[in-house]
Every structure is written in C-alpha cells, then in structure tokens.
C-alpha cells in the first residue's frame, strides 16, 4: 500500500493531523491538543488513592465516625486501665467496700453484692471483650482468607471440598456448636478465642471466595498473567487487594458479633472465670439482683450494647466508603 493510499485512508477516518515532512505526526500533536484534556489541571490536583478516597467518604458519615470514636475510647480505657483505675477506684477484685452500694461520687457505678467497685469492673471487663473480638476474628480471618482464596482462585474439586465443609459448619446451630466446642476444650478465655475463631471461618471464606470470583474475571488479572506473573503473585498482588474490601467490612462487623458471643458464653459460665471481670459474667452475677440493684445490670449491658453498636456502625460506614460505585 502506498503512502498516498494511507493518507487517503487517514482522511476517510478523520485521522489527519499535523504531520512533518516524513508523514509522521509532529511531536506537538502527541503532547497537546485533544489527547490529554486538562493535563495541567490534573497535575495540580492532589494525588488521591483508593483508600484516601474511602477515608474521605468515611469522614462524611457521622454515624461511622461516632462508632469509630467510641471504639477508640473503649480501647484507650481498656489499655490504660492499670494506670489510673487503681489510683482513683479499687482494684476490680477488691471486696472491702460495703455490699450493694448505690452509685455515689466514690463509686460512680455503685458496688456489687460483695462490695466490688462496678466502675472498675466494667473498665477491666472491656479487656476480655475486646481481646476476644479482635483475636477470635483474627483466627477466623486467617482461616477464612486462606480457605476462601484457595476456593475462589483454584475452583474445581478443592472449591467443592472447602465449600461443603463450610456448609457442614453452617448446618449446626452456632451457639450450640460453640458451647459443645468449649465443653471439649474446657472453659476459659483462651478457649473462647479458639472456639469463636474456628466457628467464624466459614462465613469469611464464603464472602472472600465470592469476592475473588468476581475480581478474577477482570482483564488486569489476564494482563498480569500475560506479563509472566506467577500464580502466587497474581493471587496476592493482583486479586487480594481488590477483593479485600468486603472482608474489612465483614471483619469489623464480626468483631461486634464475637463480643456478643463472648458475653453470652461468660454469662453461661463457659467463658472468663471469676473473679476476673467480664461484661457477660457481670450480667450473670447481677441477674438475681436486677430489681434491688439495677446498676449491676445497666452498666455492663450498656457497655456491651454501645461497643457492639459502635463496631457495626463502623463496618457499615466502611461498606459505604469502600463501595467504588458510590463515588461522589
């Protein structure tokens, strides 16, 4: 085909642009003009990342921020308890006060049946709750992410095997299964982590698997494979970061769920053992005194309610923030 023909073709397709003597497009044409509308403005705009965008959106969600602030406060109180509680209040296990005192300046939340300061017990009680929330969910995440990733990425027999196992876990009533597991492992905080953690993986695995299934169809995964990337690299570099958003949301909400489960188990006497305080066991001890000493139930109950609510609000806010389709 001759040069003239090419020119002719260019004219037909509306491709004619400024050209130098050799028929090549001039440098100017490539750099300015309609190719890059507003290239200058782009340079001036601050660099925004996916996560940066998400945080900007999260900040606009008041409920999520309230949740975040409350979670931060609870974590700060739990971590710093040793520094200030014993100086102003009694140790949570100190029994020297008069029994069943109503809230007062000295004991803001009152005292319990054997004279322990309820405020200091509520503060210390946050420790098992938060640690169960975080550790049990970490165990679920570790198991669920690995199994969900294998399931979604490789598919086939492995997928079927993992997902049917998950179905078996789902087939048992959750609370009953937890209690049965604790009956085998024995009560105690450490075993509560393990039990809740082990029982939590199937839902995480399912969520992650479906997320991977959709991400893996993207062309950039094909592009990575065509670039010579190994399976591991494709999995961890290209698929995981794009599939992780629903897990962050689900994980955050699961922390709330794990706190409730811990409280329920402690209430039933399978969790934290006396005299260590936990919100669930405090409720359990208070159940006979609900009418004469309502402060014994109100404060630990309030702590559970607000903390779980805060985690759920945070998770909800993250779901909205990480949803790219909701881009403003």
């Amino acid at each position: 085909m001759t040069r003239e023909d090419k020119k002719l073709h260019d004219v037909q397709s509306g491709m004619e642009g400024p050209r130098d003597a050799g028929g090549h497009p001039t440098k100017d044409e490539r750099v300015v003009g309609p190719i890059l509308p507003g290239a200058g403005e782009v340079a001036a705009r601050p660099a925004r990342t996916l996560w940066g965008d998400a945080f900007t959106r999260l900040r606009k969600n008041k409920l999520a921020i309230i949740g975040l602030v409350w979670v931060t406060i609870v974590i700060a109180l739990a971590l710093s308890a040793d520094l200030w509680v014993p100086r102003f209040f009694a140790e949570p296990t100190f029994t020297g006060f008069g029994s069943l005192e109503a809230p007062s300046a000295q004991h803001p939340f009152g005292t319990d049946r054997i004279g322990r300061d309820v405020f200091s017990r509520v503060v210390y009680g946050s420790r098992p709750s938060l640690s169960v929330g975080v550790l049990a969910v970490s165990i679920s995440l570790a198991l669920g992410l690995i199994l969900g990733a294998l399931s979604g990425y490789y598919g086939g027999v492995l997928d079927a095997f993992i997902m049917r196992t998950a179905d078996v876990f789902f087939a048992f009533p959750y609370m009953l299964f937890t209690i049965a597991l604790l009956a085998v492992l024995g009560p105690g905080l450490q075993n509560v982590f393990i039990a809740i953690g082990i029982l939590g993986w199937p839902s995480i695995a399912r969520v992650f698997r479906s997320s991977i299934l959709s991400v893996k169809e993207n062309e950039y995964v094909d592009a990575a494979r065509a670039m010579g990337a190994s399976d591991l690299r494709i999995m961890f570099r290209h698929i995981m970061p794009n599939a992780i958003a629903p897990i962050i949301v689900y994980g955050t909400m699961s922390i709330g769920g794990a706190i409730i489960t811990e409280a329920a188990l402690s209430y039933l006497g399978m969790g934290v053992q006396a005299p260590t305080p936990s919100w669930g066991s405090m409720l359990s001890e208070a159940k006979a005194l609900m009418i004469p000493a309502p402060w014994l139930t109100i404060w630990p109950g309030f702590a559970i309610l607000t903390t779980v609510l805060a985690f759920v609000l945070m998770g909800d806010g993250m779901r909205d923030a990480l949803d790219v389709k909701m881009k403003d």
């Binding site: 993207n218 950039y220 094909d222 592009a223 065509a226 670039m227 990337a229 794009n242």
Partner: peptide, 29 residues
C-alpha cells in the same frame, strides 16, 4: 510471557489494576 512475547488487551479501562500506581505496574514486568 511479558519478556519475549508481551500482550496488550482490548479494554484499557479494565486492564490496569486499580489499586496500584501506574508506574509500579509498568515496572512489574
């Protein structure tokens, strides 16, 4: 792949990974 034979795809909107900087992706190969 990527070293001796490289490939470009049809839809540039979806063939770059949204979570990585463009320079990082070009450097990956």
């Amino acid at each position: 792949r990527g070293d001796r034979i490289a490939m470009i795809f049809q839809d540039p909107m979806t063939s770059l990974n949204p979570v990585f900087r463009v320079g990082f992706q070009i450097g990956e190969a």
